[in-house]
């Protein structure tokens, strides 16, 4: 099977390298390196590698990385590392870049930190379900005016700080922010 990295957007797919191929892996690592804050001692570290791209071209937006099943068409975020479609059980997944825009399906503003001490971000914080136009729903943190969040609101993906770790590095994550209405 020809490996490819499909960019889903409204004007049709664009082909990229498969990040599982050596060249693709190199490209993903390069993205991560370019996004890591250069020579400064304070590094930007993704909350988990492989959730989104860090573009090397200035002005190009980062994209969430998902998987698409070539057999049944199902879409996943995050990407399925095993390459197995959990809907049809075929090993026919390819990596795709997801569009950065969607709408809020549900949300909640949380006013106390969750148990376990895993979450080190700001409180209050908000998270919920976002549906992307290509037909995938995912969970995301929200940013911007949390009091103004509404079901059905158009949102777009941004990479932002989640928290500063003990070494002073900035741990980053994807979030969705309500789109400004002009």
């Amino acid at each position: 099977m020809a490996s490819s990295f499909t960019f889903l957007n409204e004007s049709g797919p664009l082909e990229f390298h498969n990040p599982r191929s050596p060249a693709g892996l190199w490209a993903l690592r390069a993205w991560s390196r370019f996004g890591s804050g250069g020579m400064s001692s304070k590094k930007k570290i993704a909350v988990e590698e492989g959730l989104w791209t860090n573009p090397s071209i200035p002005g190009e937006k980062p994209h969430l990385i998902g998987s698409k099943c070539l057999s049944c068409g199902e879409l996943y975020f995050p990407r399925k590392k095993k390459g197995l479609c959990i809907h049809c059980q075929k090993r026919a997944l390819e990596d795709v870049l997801l569009s950065g825009k969607g709408k809020i399906v549900s949300f909640s503003v949380v006013v106390q930190p969750p148990a376990g001490g895993f979450y080190k971000g700001p409180v209050p914080y908000a998270y919920g379900a976002v549906e992307l136009p290509e037909g995938v729903e995912l969970f995301s943190l929200f940013t911007g005016n949390l009091d103004g969040l509404q079901v059905g609101m158009q949102v777009e993906m941004v990479i932002e700080k989640l928290f500063d770790d003990e070494e002073g590095n900035e741990i980053t994550t994807y979030k969705f922010i309500p789109t400004r209405i002009n």
Partner: peptide
């Protein structure tokens, strides 16, 4: 990553 993002 879901734990770190406070989804729990």
């Amino acid at each position: 990553y879901e734990l770190k993002m406070g989804f729990n």
